[in-house]
Design a binder for these strands. Structure first.
Lengths: 148, 148
DNA sequence: ATATATGCAAACGCTTTGCATAGAG
DNA sequence: CTCTATGCAAAGCGTTTGCATATAT
């Protein structure tokens, strides 16, 4: 298992930190830049592509128009706050037992899934009761100008 | 409830047909073109935007890099076949009871969700047993050149 | 006349690729 | 010398916007 390029190694190191569980190419690029490496975005792209090809990381489509990646061994689903845009991981055991039901119904063999729950996170719910707007970043999850 | 533009009306009419349950802008544009109207893509975009703003249709992010839309009243989840790319709707009642659990765990108020199950559809599973490759369109759901 | 709808063309954001160079074995 | 990694620049793709014209009220 050849540990590809330097950038790929660093990317993987970053993605294994518990600080965050899910990255866009841009976020990876920013982190790399902060640590001294200042790679070209395309190099980050290629590094992540390699990691994806080898099955080390997986692409998670969160519906905001950008590609997000997470370490393959840590799959989970996502809670996305439509008020502040924060994202929290969610253990995905619930979805697992769905697979057998779906197969029985339709003959469809489920091998993977993506569940994104949107709503209001605890912090924003609290904020709404007070008058504070701390941390407010977006009015809705897709209200950005590029809501692909 | 002003029935916006002609294009918007046609779009809505198309989207209410049972033939399909989920459209990209391109697919809508193609259908419109087939019926004689040959609108500019941007007009389709604006029409769908209007329908989305009024809550008539919703955008569903299926993770293939394009925006998909469906009629708001017919929300369901999606089975995407990684072999042929076909998509089937899935009643989403299962996800509903998740909301209360999530709220209890994390304080997150779930107001919406998107569940995409990927795997092999019944037809492709059958094909794999025989030798036929009828209907095979893609090797994986994201193997296209633009896998955003 | 005012407002809305449409086409056309161009900008945009993010991803992806082509080509040339640099560096490792 | 060959192979891989990298940077740089540009192409691509789908989406979005600006502007001018057309259509309706």
């Amino acid at each position: 298992m050849p540990r590809r390029s330097l950038i790929a190694e660093e990317v993987l190191e970053i993605m294994r930190r518990p600080a965050r569980h899910c990255w866009t190419l841009d976020e990876l690029h920013d982190d790399l830049t902060r640590q001294g490496l200042a790679p070209d975005p395309s190099s980050v792209f290629r590094a992540v592509c390699g990691l994806e090809r080898s099955g080390t990381v997986v692409r998670v489509p969160l519906g905001d128009g950008r590609a997000h990646y997470e370490v393959a061994s840590e799959h989970h689903d996502h809670l996305v706050c439509t008020t502040c845009g924060r994202m929290e991981p969610l253990a995905c055991s619930i979805v697992a037992d769905l697979a057998s039901r779906v197969r029985a119904w339709s003959g469809f063999l489920v091998s993977g899934h993506q569940l994104v729950l949107s709503g209001t996170c605890g912090i924003c719910a609290d904020d709404a009761h007070g008058t504070s707007q701390r941390g407010r970043r977006r009015s809705t999850a897709q209200a950005g100008k590029n809501g692909r």
